[in-house]
Every structure is written in structure tokens, then in C-alpha cells.
Design a protein around this nucleic acid. Structure first.
Lengths: 190, 190
DNA sequence: AGAGAGTGAGAACGGGCGTTCTCTCTCGAT
DNA sequence: ATCGAGAGAGAACGCCCGTTCTCACTCTCT
């Protein structure tokens, strides 16, 4: 009963995601991933060459899922201001997930940022991408200086992410949304 | 040539601080701290009972130093608005330190938050303390709802901290300060 | 039918960890 | 001068990790 390569990969990634995200990357051994995924160690190593590669695949998958969740909140919103605020609604929903543990990129960066250039790079890219998206939304909303507005909004978002995970509360998303509306009032043309 | 207990403790803490902060808590072995501090393993274990206790002492020391640095920026400022903005000047100076690697509490929480209740507790306490301080400053500035203003300011601060460490730039402190002035304009009586 | 490539389960290996122990030495009190 | 408490250096211990290897087995293709 050999398992399909694609499904084996997905099983491993799903198990790695749950374990890495919950306990941190270094605290999880390959053996735990083997047990959780049901994929043998041998197969695991031929699918992903090393733990480092698996970590990279984990982060890339997180990035995809995250972008999809963001889009699902932003896309339905019609007026440009509402699209920006939808990003904070997304944060609120995210924070409420029972297994929420902050941003996987921030956490991994904190663990391995100095020692693994690849992880540092992926974290940077993930955040830069979010910034790009917010800048687009700011532009669509007619902000005179979209990059500046986006920068302020990203500070509120990142702050809400770390605060919600340490304080174990979804509230920071609501506060960030409130603060964002004040900034929109100040920086968007009436 | 036996060393004084107090100075031995301080040498260990200084070495642990540098290593834990740079490489993360889990990545640093007791042997590395022994080598860096010049204090024998035996002595080290009789000063601090275990690595967990040393981590705790490290975080408590960080908290003290951090509060002192914050106070050194806030105290000289006279007008209440300037005292709030001084917090962001502090962030800017902090981010510019060559060994800056983000917030030790956020990093440690990301590594050990799920597995070590003590670390989670210390991180929470550190952040709550900062929030308390900002609330005081907001109150002194005459904010109608000091807790709310403080909450917004803390979001900007936390956001600047993580962003500056991932992007390796002190700029987020300046942006956070700008955004803070906009919020002060909106929420402080003229 | 039989050879061979590839499988899963788990043992094996080399290395690093936190912690304790051993051994030798120093030095202050008697 | 001698005893003993405590020191430093580092070996030792038991455990866990990432990775590879072994081995019996199961399919697939000829």
C-alpha cells in the first residue's frame, strides 16, 4: 500500500506545519514529523532532502495560505476604504483560530534569523509582500502618499500580531482597526 | 584567584545575555556560556540552578535594562506630548545598536512560549509593564481615554520592533513616531 | 516465475546537549 | 604545618537529534 508522492508530500507538510508552528522549529524532531505524518523517515528524506529544506517548504506553504486568507477577506469588499479595513478583519479572524500562535515568520526568524540566511530571507520576503499589497490598497483608496500610509498600517498589523499572541487575545485586531480608521481619516482625501 | 560571587554572577549574566540574545535561547549551550564568561560549569550551576533559571534571570535583566533605557529618554522630556514621542526616540536609538536583534521577550516567547509557562509569563509581564507606562504618559497628556491611546501606541511600537529586526533597519521607529503624532493630533485635546 | 527496484520499520551512528562527577589544587583557619 | 572546604578544568553520563543504513518484504516488468 504505497502512498502517492503528492499525497505523501502533503501529509508531511501538514504534519510539519502543525508541529513547527505550535512548538517552534528547533523543538520538533524529524521523528515527531514521521510519527505525525505516517510517512517513513526514508521517504521523508527523499521527498525533502533535509530538515532545512522542510522548514523552507513549511514557510512557503504558510505564505501561500496566509495570502489566500487575506485575499478572501479583501476581495469581497467593494469600497477602497473597506478593502483596507478588511485586512484588519482578516487579522481578527486569524487571531481567533484556536491554534493561533503568532506569525510563523516572526517566530522562525526569532529562532533562526541569525544562523539561517534562508529563513531571514523568507521572513523578509513575506513581510515585503504584505507591504506591497497594503501599498496597492492605499493607492486604490487614493492616498496622496500610499507607501507612507501602507507603512503605518503595517506597523499596526505587526503590532497586533505579536500582541495578540503574547496576550492570547484577538482584541488587538479590533484596536488596530480602530487606529487604522483614525489614520485613514487623517491621510485619505475626503 | 577565586572570583567574587557578585561579579561571577554578573559575568555569567553578561555572557548569557549576549549569546541568548544573538543566537536564541535554545541554540546556546551551557558550555558556550561557560567559555564566554570564564566561570566554571560547577560554579555556574551553583549560582543558577539550571538553564531554565538562567534564562529567567536573563529575561529579568533585559527587562530592567530596557526600562532604564526607556526612562532615560522619557524623563528629560518636559511637555507631556514630547514625553510620549520620546518613547519612539528611544526605539530609534535601540534599533540602531549594532547588535540589535528585536525584542528578547518576543524572540524567547516564539521559541518557548508554548512549552515554558514561565517564559510566556515573563513576556506577558514585560509587555503589560510597557503598556502601563504608556497609559500613564497618555493620562499625563490629558487624553480623554488614556488606555485606548496607549493601546494604539503600543501597537505602533511593537510593530516597529518586529519590522526593524526583520528588515534590519531603524526606519520603522521614525515611521511609528510619525503615525503616533497623527494619533495624538486626533486623540489629544488641543 | 524470477530478478530488481523501491518500500516501511526501525536500528545504528556520530555528535551535541544539560547536568553531574572526579580529580587535583589552592588557601584560610587552627 | 596540616586539615578541610571549596575552587577550576574537564571527563563522564544519559539522552535526544539529524541522517543513514539494514533488512525483510512487495510489487512490477519481462
Amino acid at each position: 500500500m504505497t502512498i502517492d508522492t503528492a499525497t505523501a508530500q502533503e501529509q508531511v507538510l501538514a504534519a510539519a506545519d502543525a508541529l513547527f508552528y505550535e512548538r517552534g522549529v528547533q523543538a520538533v524532531g524529524m521523528d515527531a514529523i514521521r510519527t505525525a505524518s505516517g510517512v517513513s523517515l526514508k521517504r521523508l528524506y527523499q521527498l525533502f532532502g533535509s530538515k532545512d529544506e522542510l522548514i523552507e517548504a513549511y514557510l512557503k506553504r504558510r505564505d501561500e495560505i496566509w495570502k489566500t486568507m487575506l485575499a478572501e477577506h479583501v476581495d469581497p469588499a467593494k469600497d477602497p476604504r473597506g478593502r483596507i479595513l478588511a485586512a484588519f478583519d482578516f487579522l481578527y479572524d486569524w487571531f481567533q483560530q484556536p491554534d493561533y500562535r503568532g506569525c510563523a515568520f516572526i517566530n522562525s526568524f526569532g529562532e533562526l534569523g541569525t544562523v539561517s540566511p534562508r529563513v531571514a530571507e523568507l521572513a523578509d520576503a513575506h513581510k515585503a509582500d504584505f507591504q506591497r499589497r497594503l501599498t496597492e490598497l492605499a493607492q486604490e483608496a487614493g492616498a496622496p502618499d500610499p507607501a507612507r500610509l501602507a507603512e503605518y498600517l503595517i506597523l499596526l498589523s505587526e503590532g497586533a500580531i505579536t500582541r495578540s499572541s503574547i496576550a492570547r487575545s484577538a482584541e488587538p485586531a479590533e484596536h488596530a482597526r480602530e487606529a487604522a480608521t483614525l489614520l485613514l481619516d487623517a491621510l485619505l482625501p475626503a
